[in-house]
Design a protein around this nucleic acid. Sequence first.
DNA 1: GACTGTGAAGCCATTCACAGCT
DNA 2: AGCTGTGAATGGCTTCACAGTC
Lengths: 211, 211
Amino acid sequence: MGVEIKIPEATISRISVYSRYLVEVERQGIVNISSGEIAEGVGGTPAQVRKDLAYFGAFGTRGVGYNVRLLNQEIKEILGLSRQWDVILIGAGNLGSALSQYRGFRERGFNILAVFDNDMNKVGLKLNGLPIYAINQMADFIRENKVSIGIIAVPADYAQDVADILIDSEIEGILNFAPTVLTVPEEVIVRDVDLAVNLEVLTYNIENKDV
Amino acid sequence: MGVEIKIPEATISRISVYSRYLVEVERQGIVNISSGEIAEGVGGTPAQVRKDLAYFGAFGTRGVGYNVRLLNQEIKEILGLSRQWDVILIGAGNLGSALSQYRGFRERGFNILAVFDNDMNKVGLKLNGLPIYAINQMADFIRENKVSIGIIAVPADYAQDVADILIDSEIEGILNFAPTVLTVPEEVIVRDVDLAVNLEVLTYNIENKDV
DNA sequence: GACTGTGAAGCCATTCACAGCT
DNA sequence: AGCTGTGAATGGCTTCACAGTC
């Protein structure tokens, strides 16, 4: 067995940000970029940028920097974005509607196939061009379309029920916007996006600015 | 001067989650709760719960646990939620619309006063009951209403411009949903909620599950 | 001369384990 | 006996500083 190198989760978040920035830089036709310039662009430090990238390989050239196009490709590979990800959205309410047409997802290669909701007045309609199906059609849909990721945008009370169906259907990952802690088996990866928690961390930091 | 105790940011996030959970527990009429039960409810460890709370004081009783109602009050105080926070939202698009009626904000004491947008077809209308004003009215509004926090839900290209106005108007904090890194003076607290980054960390974790 | 890649050091956060209180 | 509060130990992440390469 090889040596297990353990990569900080924070490194992954930052690399995703580097990627978004580098796409912009590449669009501007810039060929090479240094760790210092990347750091400048994303609000970090040069050493951190180098360390983050070096976890995955030696992509740069000493004395020169990184080739933007190549680095972009490497990072997409690292993040698993060289393949397309098929995603479903659960919840056709306000948040679901916003997420269904969020540009940032499409731009980064995420493909939302359908939306699911338990409101029969919505089922059969379209949400920003996406079909809305009933939740009881979800398990079949996931298996037939080999959906990898479910985005949960339902009220907290329903979130675990939805998660249970996703789990049964052998989903690989869940992005959870419901303000509740989901119980899932360890082979299913969950990531929580907790809007109120973010706001509360902000208020804490405001109140304790000086300290 | 007193000894500076430095509190991990992760502790603040977790305390916010504890708070949400404890509100639910209190609603169920439960009087006392142990660190183990809190940990169970939020998916953490008892030691972590105790350590997190102990940063702020000794709220529990040995042999018994924590009084739910009192602990709730203490936590709200810690997070700065004993006062009401007046907030504005910038961006009346899909995401702005979703955020404008997000229950989780109101339930936790955040009060959205108004929405701002530069689309003159929207200005003058209401968004989920909130007035929509033009961006050039924003600076005055912030000062007149002593707004503390701005939530940015505009496209990435406009986000820095919006942030600059907020900064000029002496906002205290910014919750940024735009997928871009904002440049702000250090007295303004920014928190980024990066939706695509979250999804990309998820794909990374899925692809590297086994490792 | 410029900039990367990286071991070592330093710093921060989590976990352990137990003394102390009820 | 049960559960908190906390110093000490461990583990993980970031920063430093410099050798290596172009």
